[in-house]
């Protein structure tokens, strides 16, 4: 079992309940032992920074201080399933180190609540990072009993996990492959989705709806063009925008998209054979029933694989070979192991 201090963040208890439910359901099979930070508070999302700097960092740092106290008796690894929460925790830790003045001020504020936090004392990760690089795809693979065969899934990470990536954990800033590899491990048919780290609009539906709808249209239309059955995400905000505002966006453009989006943990649970009800299925506004249909009782008859085509004579000019990425190579090895 790997022990982690969990910072769930507000949305896990409300808008992204399906994320929390499915996370709880899959954590045992993959050996993830999560202990919530006691009495954690909101991270301030992207809103508090724009109001006032020191309070914004103090708000985040209260969570870090509480987690560090908890870490004194165990693991110092913190995991956040929400992208914005993850980034805020990581950012506060990073900037308190990078700019000692900020560190001092934040600690002065924390002192008013009898708390303190020494930057660098926690090891902060996003959930996907933990599953890929700590738990390992081999462990995931062992748990797959109901491969998501034939389900075309578009991997969608959104912004704040692969960027700014203070600790250089991800294979790429624009087109990281980690989520693709996880989905492949689950047996899904992974859609080549070039917008996988484009922005969902964040709080734009509340600020400038037209901007937000255009950003959503780009994401949904490209997924749709590429015959996606379901999108999957690692961020509550991305899920909310694509799921919750899809109807309003359709109205705005006069389109008729029906693009469900699920949390990646829901797909993991499904592949692990867990009851969809435990995984928060049905909580989405744009129904993902099609996914269940695809792998459920009404599984489509298996089509025999096409015979391997003989390599054709090279036509045109050759393409450069892909750049060897040691990070990806290690992952690949892990899967085939």
């Amino acid at each position: 079992m790997s022990d982690y201090i969990l910072y769930p963040g507000c949305s896990m208890e409300t808008g992204a309940r399906a994320y929390y439910d499915s996370l709880k359901a899959i954590s045992k099979p993959i050996g993830l032992n999560l202990k919530e930070i006691d009495d954690w508070n909101c991270c301030g999302a992207t809103e508090y920074f724009g109001i006032s700097k020191t309070p914004a960092y103090a708000l985040i740092a209260r969570n870090l201080a509480l987690a560090a106290e908890q870490a004194a008796n165990g693991t110092r690894k913190v995991v956040a399933p929400c992208s914005a929460c993850y980034l805020n925790l990581a950012k506060a830790d990073h900037y308190m180190r990078e700019q000692p003045k900020l560190g001092r001020q934040v600690n002065e504020a924390l002192a008013a609540g009898n708390l303190s936090y020494k930057p660098g004392s926690l090891d902060i990760h996003h959930l996907l990072d933990v599953i890929i690089y700590d738990i390992g795809l081999d462990v995931v693979e062992k748990n797959v009993v109901r491969p998501l065969k034939g389900v075309r899934v578009a991997p969608y990470l959104g912004c704040m996990v692969p960027r700014p990536d203070y600790d250089h954990r991800w294979s790429d800033h624009d087109l990281p492959v980690e989520l693709d590899m996880l989905l492949k491990t689950l047996g899904a048919d992974v859609v080549d989705y070039p917008l996988k780290t484009e922005c969902c609009g964040g709080h734009m539906p509340q600020i400038s709806p037209a901007t937000a709808f255009e950003m959503l249209r780009r994401l949904i239309s490209v997924a749709d063009e590429r015959d996606t059955d379901v999108m999957t995400t690692i961020c509550p905000m991305c899920q909310l925008n694509i799921d919750g505002y899809q109807g309003e966006m359709n109205g705005f453009f006069g389109t008729n998209y029906h693009m469900p989006i699920l949390f990646f943990t829901q797909l993991m649970g499904l592949a692990f054979g867990i009851d969809p009800k435990e995984l928060g299925f049905g909580l989405e506004l744009v129904s993902a029933r099609n996914v269940l249909d695809a792998i459920g009782v009404k599984a489509p008859p298996e089509t025999p694989p096409a015979p391997p085509r003989r390599p054709r004579k090279p036509e045109g000019l050759p393409m450069p070979t892909p750049l060897a990425n040691p990070q990806i190579e290690t992952l690949k090895k892990e899967v085939t192991k």
């Binding site: 790429d172 800033h173 624009d174 087109l175 393409m319 450069p320 070979t321 892909p322 750049l323």
Partner: peptide, 15 residues
């Protein structure tokens, strides 16, 4: 310089 390193320019991915 190995242009594949700047993935945002697509060399090696976009023919």
């Amino acid at each position: 310089f190995d242009a594949r390193r700047m993935t945002n320019y697509g060399y090696g991915r976009l023919p």
